[in-house]
Write a protein that binds this DNA or RNA. Structure first.
Lengths: 148, 148
DNA sequence: TGTAGTATTAGAATCAGTCTAAAACTGTAG
DNA sequence: CTACAGTTTTAGACTGATTCTAATACTACA
């Protein structure tokens, strides 16, 4: 059984524990979100969910996504303009790598994050909670198809 | 003369050098963007510009902002959902500090950014161009008005 | 079986931003 | 000065993403 499958199974378990009512619609949304290194828009999730439950409405998809985000089971992120992306890999905190040429996004665990800190002159009584790092660059595939 | 004023003056100079035609509308947008630690939405910039040139239209504000961003004179950023924010402090690269309680954003130069790097297992031929760091936490003011 | 609470729906509404086609300006050559 | 080409601005239509609304359907359980 894959890492993603295990993650998905644990998620279903947590949802059951929380007495979150699992309906066919909600299940289809949660299923649309299983898979590794996945970053989908609400519209893509809607499309996937529809292949399983054709009568599902956009409102339900948005409601379900909001609830999962509130429960901490799903991360919502905004990389540049355009629609929000949903990242099912929310339980373990991680960072992102964005290819500026194809736009693909990868989950990463960079080195040096724990040493990031504010300078004295920037601090001004601020209480740090977390740091978010986004790397931009060019992925192998885009570098190799070097046809500028 | 303040730091921000000097920055603003140099900006006007660069725009002149580039033969960017300065019209009253464009001037009002550029003026709306002067000030330290400023992060405005297009709508706020429109409102400010209107106090100077009441007949300016939204389209002109958006056009002008796009041109400034293309010229590298203005940074456009997306912190969470909602409208994009424009940061006039674009020439010197910097990072951001966001108060999760009041939403205010501060420009910072954190320690340790230059040591951030990809792990071998995450790298996969990726060519890094830049890292973007966003700190989240609570600002002094919000911490002091501790009335939960 | 009735009822209260929960979930879902289609479509209207909202919000941010882009597009369009016409009108207004500007610089310059005659 | 006048004509023209090129640039800039405009109001409002349009689009895409998301939220809201009010009606309907489902579920648990008294």
């Amino acid at each position: 059984m894959s890492h993603a499958d295990k993650r998905h199974e644990r998620l279903r378990e947590r949802l059951r524990e929380r007495r979150w009512r699992i309906t066919p619609q909600r299940r289809s949304v949660v299923e649309a979100l299983s898979g590794p290194n996945l970053h989908l828009t609400a519209e893509e999730i809607f499309a996937r969910a529809r292949t399983v439950v054709p009568e599902i409405s956009r409102a339900t998809v948005y409601n379900t996504l909001r609830e999962l985000v509130e429960m901490g089971e799903l991360a919502e992120m905004q990389i540049g303009p355009g629609p929000a992306l949903y990242d099912p890999n929310a339980v373990v905190h991680h960072h992102h790598l964005v290819c500026s040429s194809c736009g693909r996004i990868y989950d990463i665990h960079p080195l040096g994050v724990e040493h990031l800190d504010l300078r004295e002159e920037d601090r001004d009584g601020f209480e740090l909670q977390r740091a978010e790092v986004v790397f931009h660059g060019r992925c192998r595939a885009c570098k190799e198809s070097e046809d500028t």
